[in-house]
Design a protein around this nucleic acid. Sequence first.
DNA 1: GTCTATAGCCCGATAGAC
DNA 2: GTCTATCGGGCTATAGAC
Lengths: 218, 218
Amino acid sequence: MLIHVESHKQDKSVGRIRQQNESKIIAAAEIEFARHGYKGASIQNIAERSGLPKANIHYYFRSKQGLYAAVLSNILDLWDEVLSELDPDGDPAQELEAYIRAKMVLSRDYPLASRIFGIEIMSGGAHLKEYFQDGYVDWFKGRTAVFETWIAQGKMQPIDPAHLVFLLWSSTQHYADFSCQIDAALGKPQAMLERAEFDTATETLIHIILQGCGIRQP
Amino acid sequence: MLIHVESHKQDKSVGRIRQQNESKIIAAAEIEFARHGYKGASIQNIAERSGLPKANIHYYFRSKQGLYAAVLSNILDLWDEVLSELDPDGDPAQELEAYIRAKMVLSRDYPLASRIFGIEIMSGGAHLKEYFQDGYVDWFKGRTAVFETWIAQGKMQPIDPAHLVFLLWSSTQHYADFSCQIDAALGKPQAMLERAEFDTATETLIHIILQGCGIRQP
DNA sequence: GTCTATAGCCCGATAGAC
DNA sequence: GTCTATCGGGCTATAGAC
């Protein structure tokens, strides 16, 4: 409403700065929330990391909760955007392989998103209560329905669809969430897994899961 | 040294109380650390939950770090104790199946341990630096060696052993770590997964992984 | 819109009476 | 060994000058 009164010039300029600052804050917040969880993260550190004064964070996002909600919302949007649904009429082998590849790319390119979500769930998911409301059961049924179709058509063995979905999630997210343990186990000097290692992981998962479901023969 | 001067009666009594209180504190700390991570947990809440005054926690454990180290150490001891190594001379199918069952029982019976460790790793594992020192690479090589033996003997397909181990870890721990998401997806009213659901999950994982490695035929 | 200054609270840790 | 009382510091959030 108020914005309508202001000139276009001001709108653009102000909007641009706002968007830039909000992005800076969100980027800094993702690092802090991924490192310390919701309660452990501090607005002070987020402010220092973003290069903005502490009070500006309260100006752009009403509160710590508001900032965290924005970060979580970004993560859910990213996943909805990137992960397309499996096509019941498609070839199971191709569909599953493409899904595993897409999830592994997400783990490689957006590890912070995966970790923030993971820590939130492990901590009890108190901030995702709404997200996990009744609609979630139906959404999940949509995820498993594809496999029931394929099983009914004899395209794969009668694997429990829900637990297959959990396996797809857990095995792929592991490479984002537990990367510091993986690095330690493989003796990588620091931080991120090499691209080649990620590719090996992807191919290994595709092999075991597809063959394990009887979709590909040995 | 000082203890030797005191009477046996005092020793026993004091030792018993100390052990009881330490157990109470550790139990309360596990709940708080699993819910808020290291930085987010507060000694105050741990004290209230344990029914002891705040200062006693500093008396029994020197500091917050000391208490957290004790909790983490308990978790690592539990896993060393329960998870026996795979026998290279044993039957791969039986050995792998037994391992998956053992890890799923741990996820079911000690979900807090799994979550505390998981949150610590996801947060960067700063408090496990020593644990992940050079010895860890060798320990991990010991884990993967069994599979290399089996592959050389033609008992299983040439699966990358390291990524197979990661799959075993991720798929089983998921049921402890992400239980609140699993409950939401399956429409369980609250908290813990039913025993029957856990059994279904275990059998599904055994089926997919063993068949996926070419250890069991379809 | 931006930023300084500060209120009010909870934190980890300790001193010291019992 | 136990527990109260308290210190110093960092926290979220806001008031108000610019």
